[in-house]
Design a binder for these strands. Sequence first.
DNA 1: AGCACGCCGACT
DNA 2: GTCGGCGTGCTC
Length: 806
Amino acid sequence: MKYASVIVDVPTMQTDRTFDYKIPEKWQGMILQGMRVIVPFGQRKLQGFVIEVKEESSFKKLKSIEGLQDLTPSVTPELLQLGSWLTETTLCFNISALQAMLPAAMKAKYDKMITLISEEKRKELEPTLKKYFEKQAEIPWSTFEDDDLLKQIQKEIQKGSLEVVYRVSQKTKQKKKRVVQLAQIQTDRNSPLDLLPSQAKKQKEMAQFAVEHIGSKEMPASDFLSLTNGSESSLKGLIQKGIITEKWVEIYRDPYEGRHFKKSLPLPLTTEQQQSISPILESVENKLHKVFLMYGVTGSGKTEVYLQSIEAVLNKGKEAIVLVPEISLTPQMVNRFKSRFGSMVAVLHSGLSIGEKYDEWRKIQRKEVKLVVGARSAIFAPFENLGMIIIDEEHETSYKQEETPRYHARDVAIKRGDYHNCPVVLGSATPTLESFARAQKGVYTLLTLKERVNNRAMPAVEIIDMREELRNGNRSMFSETLLEALQSRIEKKEQTVLFLNKRGYSSFVMCRDCGYVIQCPHCDISLTYHRFGQQLKCHYCGHEEIMPKVCPECQSEHIRYFGTGTQKVEEELAKVLPEASVIRMDVDTTSKKGSHERLLTKFGEGGADILLGTQMIAKGLDFPKVTLVGVLSADTMLHLPDFRAAEKTFQLLTQVSGRAGRHELPGEVIIQSYTPEHYSIELTKEHHYDEFFRQELAVRKLHEYPPYYYICLLTISHPDVLKVAIVTENISTFLKSNLSQQSIILGPVTSPIPKIKDRYRYQCMIKYKKEKNLHGTLKNILEHYQKDVHQNSLQITIDMNPYVML
DNA sequence: AGCACGCCGACT
DNA sequence: GTCGGCGTGCTC
């Protein structure tokens, strides 16, 4: 007898461990580590992951595994190990870590049904229930909301006519396609046509076609029918007579179906690129796990280095993962990889449907592809022979997952690289302070690309002091300089990218008479104005209301929205430059699938003078005719309660500037700011990362932030303010007495957003360098408040390396 | 997370 | 004396 240790699909503390099950005789040897199974758990049936198959179990009253959900393990031994590592390091439940590594389609769906025990029992049912079970023998539990009905059902269950069953199913199934082929039994002597009666004219015709055009090959049934103009019933006849066989085969939903990718060849490398690639190749060759930080200015050809390193990896028969920030996973980017490596590439990003993601994942699992290009979660691609991991735009915050498990893809990449003895390449023009500091310390190997390919000059950056503009009487959102530059581009038929840094600066509604700002009734945050339907929306809880005509406080009619949205900019543009054609890209215009791409293509083809947008246009775009980039207000992000605000500002401005003058035409960048003297803005002028790094490092040291300290953020929330305050107070006291003297515990303080969804939020921050006891202490806290979490809807979230301080 | 089990108040 | 309320604890 063999036994399986299983982790069940219940994300709670008490069930965050394995449970043993017997493996039934029929599945001995079939059930392997890493497979998903269905197990009885209490009264229910649950999905679980087999962590281990073993010879004995110390538990007496074992139940048996009830079903298989996989025939090959979904989770490789490596990923299983990685799962427990994630559980440890991010303080999540083991099951959450495992779920995070698989496509959403594989998450179990649970149905609770009421079923008729047998046909005879149907007659015995109470008349009220009878009508429910007239046509079907099984009805979802949720149908019977009514208490009286439930009472009757309970009686029937006691009588033995009905029973409750729990069912586990998968969210998405494999997509199947029906194909037909000529049956095997046919011999050359016996033409299939002879088997048909003479009156079956249509069938004969179809069989003839099959003999001539299909043979032993397969053809989609739909094609066969349309080519022969045949009917379903004639096909059925042919199948019945054994002339044609049909079967269902799994097909992939291909998001890039019908797209043609022109094959691209390796480009000759510059000396710098050569110098960067050789240590990487060396590490591949010697199977050495090393982390490289490739610091290369925009346009220095990092991607070509990636492509050629990957080529070397693939030539060795190994696999590679390339992570790209979600936002820049544009068709342009995908094209570069698909053109070089063709069908060896799987692509994973949020634009795909659940089914499409599942299919891409299946291609990886079946080793039908050798390379994955994808966003954060692609780091869990189930390759077993990894030869390299690349993280492009290493500084991007989207690599950090902001829900449990709160992992950073960079950390996972390094962990996996260590396991596979392969290099990890982090690339960026503006590396995170953490990474650059590690590179300087020699923890990572620094590779520098200072020159742009073809020695194109960096665009000239001009910083405009908007306070000055105001003093000179210009109250519009465009400075004189920017306006003139815009006009000249339109005249020269060149293009402009206008960037609106919207984060932390959405349009709120305020009364001009009394200063009242409309806020969400559930969250301590002002509502955002959406012109669509004159609505006010809360971005945290989704609360919506209609824009009021008068101020709710003082009844004044002078209530209007403030702040600059893309729509507003578009309106302003229309006023000052009526002749300019504008493409606006924001959440409103890109919500539909494929619209993002369509707008970009249109702009690329010269369909507009100006591309106006938010964050989403900051990266990866490469249009030859763009010679001007304008940043409307550089400093909106600078004043957020976030120690990385300066870093993020510098990174963003540098990235945006990189959009200009990437080709023959020289580029110009105009940045408008109300605090132009701030180093994070001023230093973008000279593209001076090194100096920015030096200054910012000093600030971090002074304020005891990364990379000098690690940070851990605890957020506690509860509907009752008092409760949160007390709990948070207790937690910080506990932390202070349990952690070392060197660690700094800040708080309790109210969170930057003090209330979300009617829950008050407090937080507490730990800054530490070395803290052996941290995980143990945090676990103690979680255990201690377990009851409160369970019963009193207390919430404690722990983020071991926060990127968002809210 | 569910669900059963078990111990107290408001009824037939 | 029973029905049903919710707090408590378990699920291989």
